[in-house]
Design a protein around this nucleic acid. Sequence first.
DNA 1: GTGGTCTAGACCACA
DNA 2: GTGGTCTAGACCACC
Lengths: 129, 129, 129, 129
Amino acid sequence: MINIDLRSREPIYEQLIDNIKQLIFSGILAPDEKLPSVRELASQLTINPNTIQKAYKELENMGYIYSARGRGNFVMPVDRNKGEVYGMELLNKMKELVREANYVGIPKKSILEMIDDIYNKSVNKEVQK
Amino acid sequence: MINIDLRSREPIYEQLIDNIKQLIFSGILAPDEKLPSVRELASQLTINPNTIQKAYKELENMGYIYSARGRGNFVMPVDRNKGEVYGMELLNKMKELVREANYVGIPKKSILEMIDDIYNKSVNKEVQK
Amino acid sequence: MINIDLRSREPIYEQLIDNIKQLIFSGILAPDEKLPSVRELASQLTINPNTIQKAYKELENMGYIYSARGRGNFVMPVDRNKGEVYGMELLNKMKELVREANYVGIPKKSILEMIDDIYNKSVNKEVQK
Amino acid sequence: MINIDLRSREPIYEQLIDNIKQLIFSGILAPDEKLPSVRELASQLTINPNTIQKAYKELENMGYIYSARGRGNFVMPVDRNKGEVYGMELLNKMKELVREANYVGIPKKSILEMIDDIYNKSVNKEVQK
DNA sequence: GTGGTCTAGACCACA
DNA sequence: GTGGTCTAGACCACC
């Protein structure tokens, strides 16, 4: 499920963060579900525990997971109060990619299909409008 | 036109690259148009010329600009042959953002509006489908 | 009355200690009043009894409660002889918070109101000067 | 200026954070002023650079400093937009200490003097009300 | 067994 | 020279 490229320019701990975020966003990791322990994931990916620790800590700072000493790390239930600021940032990041897609000739249809695919699977009916 | 935040965590040269790419994608910088010279941009942004140089070099490697010795740097005309691989990468990056947007509750409508806005302004009629 | 956040970064036993200390300081728990038994509190908060035990033990060491074997734990009557050293520590901790409040722009008035509120409710007339 | 107790229960990096925060709040470190480099502070305090790094990173996350690769760490200019939530948290922490002070018999006057002392030195006239 | 802190030491990326 | 990443390995704190 988790895919790390040791040769990549992107730091290992950031790849980890991205991987786990995607598992959360796609619902594979449910709210309050326990993540693999630091040591377990470390040995499984043959990566130093400190690096896993760092990724988990960062995810905690970002509000995606919470960490309880002696018990483990868990997925933080969604906080839809993240606010409009955060939403705007997300949309702006997407905007840059869409401009590039338009520029290199990716048809609009391909993008719309991808979006439909994700939103149709969503449990949250409100956002589908 | 170019906006650098010296306090940002993102390296200055990367901010430069992103800025210039966006100027190209949005058509503000036209194909074969000349970019500001390294020195000029450096003094204008009060940034070390080496940093500008590095950004230009990288943009050249990525194929977005070309450099003509003694004359300056110019916008590379679009190459729509970048291939499907590149397109897939772009779509995958967008996919991650869309999943997050869905997760935090951004309505589909907001995203579609943003996309329409960009594609409608496009000169390239082919991609609008 | 007791409020534990299992998702908090602060250890559960410390949250317990803080909660009980506040109940004592605010007079909700009177001197020589009996605290809930370890088992009772454990099942009520669905927390490991060892954790409750640890909190009680610590509170006893700090002099806020005393334990009578076979009978339970009780609130220790106030000892105003804790000495000037202890008072200075308290004031220094407050000082740090006040500096921060000043820095982030909290008006002095808000702080004074909060203090008045607490001291006016106090039974101890001596300290109100 | 910075005071670390290696024997304390409080982690070194947290002591560092508190120390630096106080230097900022009291105006000893001015906005956009450069902090000592990681290595410099490490050798000066005979502490491992990683530990300093960790403290700086945390301070960055909290928004008190910003960090620029190749240049150093700098004090972040105050953001009075931290919002009321943050202010309430601060006041609640103070509240707990004030209750305790009241309980152990610290006279109100001592607290008020301390507060006056801090707010009178403040440049920000608005908060002195 | 779980997360968290710390050190020593290597190596990379940025300006 | 500045910050950032990573490893190996030790030890502590919590539940």
